[in-house]
Design a binder for these strands. Structure first.
Length: 448
DNA sequence: AACGTTAGCAACCGCCTGGCG
DNA sequence: GCGCCAGGCGGTTGCTAACGT
């Protein structure tokens, strides 16, 4: 990919665009874009170029806005809860980054995608399971729901798995909005009545947890005694994720996503949860939850100065996830230190060609190299909000509203159609219910 | 200090979809 | 129904900081 090294690259006169710039955005370009959005709102990205003289294609403008300039962006390392949410959602819906990001307020699809690609796929290449066992079980159960022989629909029941499944809990075809019968949880997993009333999804997930026990052996066990799925590290036919032994095979479509996910083509068996996760969420009860943490703060900007190549990060990201991980020693309860460790082997080799100073990446096999816990501290960042503050004339840490009002704009842009939170309250509820799912597995056994 | 390696991430590309005439 | 266009999305590439030797 030909890209500029900071000075920008003007695309040769190809298409009708005629000299569109590529490469990293400059402060001046950002300001043009921000000013435009402040005046006209989002959308009509191709007009940006006409009206501002910005030599960027509309798509590039949209991307820059969505990923870096819009308010409510939350930069910095993912919190442990965000990580778990990503895992769950990815396990359920696959590489639907925009969908996943819609459940992580302030996070962009690109950010989540990068996170997944750079950190979790290491596990896959190293032949390790992609998901922690507890999440794996949740996924497994939902998969089982999807091919439930009791569910009406596409006849995908018991395909290959031979697992006798209990009646569905997640979906009532007759009344998809009805709450399923509340399944008593083990004491450790109890939730408040408010949750049962107001969070049908959580309520169903409770039932799901219970059903996992049935699938795993039919005995009522304490969470600590739950059997662990063993990973055979075989690739499924769909071209992607690993499957766990004893699980019903995931119905797949040709060219489908490389991860565990539902077959959304099988109508009627996808279930309420899937429809919720896939965004069909208009029927969810909305209830403001004052306990939820507000999303911070400044729009985080990154400028790569052409001369110094200094990367300037804005936003409130303090510390790094790896730093946190480095504080978590083997044997610690990673759940409670709110971190699960990533194990990976050598997955790629980068060589620098001295002739042209270009990097070439080669994927190599793990070989005999032992996989190890990832306690490597994160690379240091150079958080400097000064640049952003100077540019927009706002104080670091100010809220998005302050930011836009400070910019002089009377109309704060809408969350935006892409990578944006379409319904913050719903997402916050999602965040809450995800975080409330009982955790039960010693993840060290999983990491081992 | 120099060089190799790795991880993180911004930004591009191509495909797809929906709206519109 | 068809073509065009804008926008959205997922995959991929390439640059660079940080770390390792």
């Amino acid at each position: 990919m030909a890209r500029s090294g900071g000075g920008g690259l003007v695309e040769g006169g190809g298409g009708g665009g005629g000299g569109l710039k590529k490469g990293p955005w400059t402060q001046a370009e950002d300001k043009l874009l921000v000013d435009h959005v402040r005046r006209h709102g989002e959308g009509n990205w191709n007009a940006v170029r006409r009206e501002t003289g910005l030599q960027r294609c509309g798509k590039s403008c949209r991307l820059r806005w969505a990923n870096h300039l819009r308010p409510n962006l939350r930069k910095g390392p993912f919190s442990p809860e965000e990580e778990r949410q990503i895992l769950r959602l990815h396990g359920l819906i696959g590489n639907k980054w925009a969908r996943i990001s819609s459940h992580l307020p302030g996070r962009t699809d690109n950010e989540i995608k990068n996170y997944w690609n750079t950190r979790l796929k290491r596990r896959q290449r190293a032949g390790l399971p992609l998901y922690p066992p507890d999440i794996e079980r949740e996924i497994a159960l939902l998969r089982a729901q999807n091919i439930n022989p009791f569910a009406d629909g596409d006849g995908s029941a018991s395909a290959g798995g031979g697992v006798s499944l209990p009646p569905p809990l997640l979906y009532d075809a007759g009344n998809p909005f009805a709450l399923p019968p509340t399944v008593p949880l083990p004491p450790s997993g109890s939730h408040s009545p408010l949750i049962n009333q107001s969070y049908p999804l959580l309520n169903q997930m409770q039932g799901m947890q219970q059903q996992v026990f049935h699938l795993a052996g039919g005995h009522h066990q304490s969470p600590q005694q739950q059997p662990v799925f063993h990973h055979h590290q075989q690739h499924d036919g769909g071209g992607g994720g690993f499957v766990s032994s004893g699980l019903p095979p995931l119905p797949t479509r040709a060219h489908e996503l490389p991860s565990n996910q539902f077959d959304t083509s099988s109508s009627g068996s996808g279930g309420l949860l899937e429809s919720l996760l896939l965004g069909d969420d208009h029927h969810l009860p909305r209830q403001h939850n004052p306990t939820m943490v507000k999303v911070n703060s400044m729009p985080a900007l990154t400028y790569r100065d052409a001369g110094s190549r200094q990367t300037v990060h804005g936003g409130a990201g303090a510390g790094s996830d790896s730093d946190e991980a480095s504080h978590c020693h083997p044997g610690e309860d990673i759940h409670h230190s709110a971190k699960w460790n990533f194990t990976f082997g050598r997955t790629q080799k980068t060589t620098r060609c001295k002739r042209d100073h270009r990097l070439t990446k080669h994927v190599v096999a793990s070989g005999n190299r032992c996989v190890s816990e990832d306690f490597k501290p994160a690379k240091r960042r150079t958080p400097s909000e000064a640049g952003i503050s100077d540019m927009f004339g706002v104080a670091p840490g100010s809220t998005p509203g302050e930011w836009f009002s400070t910019c002089g704009g009377s109309t704060a842009p809408s969350p935006g159609p892409s990578s944006a939170v379409t319904d913050e309250e719903f997402n916050l509820e999602m965040q809450q219910f995800m975080s409330l799912l009982p955790l039960s597995i010693d993840e060290h056994s999983w990491n081992a």
